[in-house]
C-alpha cells in the first residue's frame, strides 16, 4: 500500500515562493495566472500494511508529528493499493 501526501500552506499564510513563481509565469506570457501556491508531495511506502483505514490513520499521525507543520500547513492523505 502507498500513501500520497499533499502538504499545502494554510490560507492566509504568505507564500513568497509561490508569489515568485506567479511573477515568473506572468513574465513568460501567462497573464491569466491569478495565483500560485507551492506545496509538497510525499509518497510513503507501506508494503506490509493491508488495512487501508489503518494506513491512513498512521500516515495522518506521521503528518502531525513530522511531515507537516500544522502551524502553517494543511495536509491531505490518500491511500492507494
Amino acid at each position: 500500500m502507498k500513501a500520497k501526501v499533499h502538504i499545502t500552506l494554510k490560507n492566509g499564510v504568505l507564500d513568497p515562493q509561490g508569489k515568485a513563481v506567479e511573477h515568473a509565469l506572468h513574465g513568460l506570457g501567462f497573464p491569466e495566472v491569478a495565483g500560485v501556491r507551492q506545496g509538497k508531495y510525499i509518497e510513503v511506502d507501506l508494503p506490509k500494511q493491508k488495512d487501508k483505514a489503518q494506513a491512513k490513520a498512521d500516515v495522518e499521525k506521521m503528518c502531525k508529528s513530522l511531515l507537516a507543520n500544522t502551524v502553517i500547513e494543511n495536509f491531505s492523505v490518500e491511500v492507494v493499493d
Binding site: V13, L14, P16, Q17, A20, N69, V71, I72
Partner: peptide, 16 residues
C-alpha cells in the same frame, strides 16, 4: 519552534 518549545514558525524570507 519545531520541537514545540516556542510558538510559531520561521518561514522563508520575504524576498527569498
Amino acid at each position: 519552534t519545531e520541537a514545540g518549545l516556542l510558538p510559531g514558525v520561521l518561514m522563508r524570507n520575504k524576498d527569498l
